[in-house]
């Protein structure tokens, strides 16, 4: 656990420190690639590839100096995102009391709980808006809890915050462009924008309208679209159903399912436990800053406590 394994096919190359961009995401190698078939890093005889190859399952590097391509692929034996015993405070208020959770690649994980349980605080801590006083936040095994928010976004942990937080005086297009702020690949940005418009055709109709003039549902679509523009490795969604009409809630949730089906890992914070558990793979139940239950979504739905407290059954 904790190491990535890379299978290296190609010439022994000194790729340490090598960096570049693939799919608009920066990558950097922190150890040399050295054998035709590198084993797990740390094993001397197999050759070393201690890779920090951010977020790529397969990668082809062809360099001018090295004509034969090196193909690196990896599987992750560690969770994509992990919180270990995180304590966060608002001043003297102890908001998170030792939260530990993990999100695996490809999952939808949901955090449910009532108002003030610490759901949004958890997301704000992951995004670096709040600094935990104790504990660790790990992304691909790397600590991110000391990083400023924009660095965390750069790694691919992107949040669509509570209350949408659309830029009210930027147009829909500009809001989406700001979502792709860290990217420079114009063509890819344009493709992603089209993808957002396929998910949310309403946004295309409102392209040059200011964000503040949109309806609540449209703003929520824009907030999710804006987060997608950053090409998240993990998408953090904070209360996407808040304040929306039931029909819109269903629509939004079905789109969240689509986004996940297209390969984006999602950590979903919701008060609407019924909807959240319907699309999530696993879930955590938060109560006053502590995780009281963790299980698969199906098991949580059957759970008496959850049914009673959050699903209004029994």
């Amino acid at each position: 656990m904790g190491w990535n394994r890379w299978e290296v096919d190609g010439e022994c190359g000194k790729v340490k420190g090598d960096r570049g961009r693939v799919e608009g995401r920066r990558w950097r190698l922190v150890a040399p690639v050295c054998r035709r078939d590198a084993r797990a890093p740390g094993e001397q005889k197999g050759g070393l590839v201690a890779g920090k190859l951010w977020g790529l399952k397969a990668l082809r590097i062809s360099r001018r100096s090295n004509p034969s391509p090196i193909v690196l692929s990896s599987w992750f034996s560690m969770p994509l995102l992990e919180l270990k015993n995180v304590h966060t405070y608002y001043g003297s208020i102890h908001a998170l009391k030792g939260i530990s959770l993990s999100v695996e690649e490809g999952e939808i994980v949901t955090l449910i709980g009532s108002n003030g349980a610490g759901k949004s605080t958890t997301l704000r801590t992951i995004s670096g808006l709040l600094k935990p006083r104790q504990g660790e936040v790990l992304f691909r095994g790397e600590r991110i809890d000391h990083l400023p928010p924009h660095k965390i976004v750069e790694m691919g942990v992107i949040q669509s915050p509570e209350g949408r937080r659309i830029f009210p005086r930027l147009t829909v297009r500009e809001n989406l462009e700001v979502g792709a702020f860290l990217r420079n690949d114009k063509a890819e940005i344009a493709r992603d924008m089209e993808r957002v418009f396929h998910l949310f055709p309403r946004l295309y109709e409102r392209l040059n309208q200011r964000g503040g003039t949109l309806s609540g549902g449209e703003q929520q679509m824009l907030a999710i679209g804006r987060a997608l523009m950053g090409r998240p490795r993990v998408l953090l969604l904070d209360e996407p159903s808040m304040g929306l009409a039931p029909v819109l809630v269903e629509q939004i949730f079905s789109i969240i399912g689509d986004i996940n089906a297209q390969g984006t890992t999602i950590l979903l914070v919701e008060q609407n436990a019924l909807m959240a558990l319907a699309i999530a793979h696993r879930g955590y139940v938060l109560q006053t800053g502590e995780i009281v239950l963790a299980d698969t979504a199906n098991a949580l739905r059957e759970n008496k406590l959850v049914q009673h407290a959050y699903l209004g059954i029994g």
Binding site: S127, P149, V153, P161, F167, L170, F181
Partner: peptide
């Protein structure tokens, strides 16, 4: 792009930082 970042920061600082703006 810089101008967009300035306007975004002016309108909502925390949200701007969540977009990767320093």
């Amino acid at each position: 792009k810089l101008g967009k970042a300035i306007r975004a920061v002016a309108q909502d600082r925390p949200a701007a930082s969540l977009m990767g703006i320093d």
